[in-house]
Nucleic acid binder design. Sequence first.
DNA 1: ATAAAATAGGTTGATGTCAAAGGTTTCGGA
DNA 2: TCCGAAACCTTTGACATCAACCTATTTTAT
Lengths: 146, 146
Amino acid sequence: MSKVSDFPYESTLEVRDTCMCLHLQRAARAVARRFDEAFRPLGLTNGQFSILMSLNRPEAPVMGDVARLLALDRTTLTANLKPLERRGLVEIRPDADDRRSRRLKLTKDGEQLLLQAHPIWRDTHADLDSQIDDPQRLRDDLLKLA
Amino acid sequence: MSKVSDFPYESTLEVRDTCMCLHLQRAARAVARRFDEAFRPLGLTNGQFSILMSLNRPEAPVMGDVARLLALDRTTLTANLKPLERRGLVEIRPDADDRRSRRLKLTKDGEQLLLQAHPIWRDTHADLDSQIDDPQRLRDDLLKLA
DNA sequence: ATAAAATAGGTTGATGTCAAAGGTTTCGGA
DNA sequence: TCCGAAACCTTTGACATCAACCTATTTTAT
């Protein structure tokens, strides 16, 4: 009688097969690797690409805007910007009106890199989309969770 | 004539609205935060929960098995096991037959923690599932991408 | 039998992720 | 006016993620 209550294997199988968090993490990791590989010639990761892309607006956004758009912690964004700033792809400067805020501005170099990255994104993304019956439906579901 | 080719804003909007990678990362981050918060009283993250759960099998798996199941890099799994081993939730020992392989065994403490974690998972997951029209369809899509 | 290839895993270095705690600036109500 | 709450951001510490490079063991082809 040495056994204390075992955790049932059936529950493990239930979690393994139905856990939305696990399914999301797996898919997110796998897709991230595909984009990371595609962008590697440019020295960009998928996350860096998303950040740079989000900065290409008529008006340079502030950090909170970008963090919300990417569903990213503000402190994570602060960290992620460091390599981009170091490479001269992004400029960070205090907002003129609200000195708490910092404007994130894509540099000319950053813009040129986006120009190179876009066709890579288009091709990789087309491959991916073709694997899914209804990509827009999937995106809608993902939006509901974010 | 100082302007070099701008990267068009329309392309940015296209990427922002359709990029499956971005949608996945956003949803994965948001859902991960929800589970992290729910598991916090147990000192577990969503990823640690997934690893522990994947070890609850009749036969203790080896690292490669688990890495493939979680769509996780082998070296990432090595790193993730360290805190779990330190807490005495997992035991790592060389396989008897193949000395390259290492068996990952859930300890009694690990099993007890799973016992506590499961109802938290069930409740959090039920909340999540109720936000989606057809959770199984979403899981199927995510499986195709992983 | 043995050398080459394949398999299993670890180490290092760079980056990504977030909570907790803290600073500065702005805003809104008394 | 002014003071407390809210907003914006940073730093720190812990963990997560992967590529590149490495060792050890097993398998395979000759």
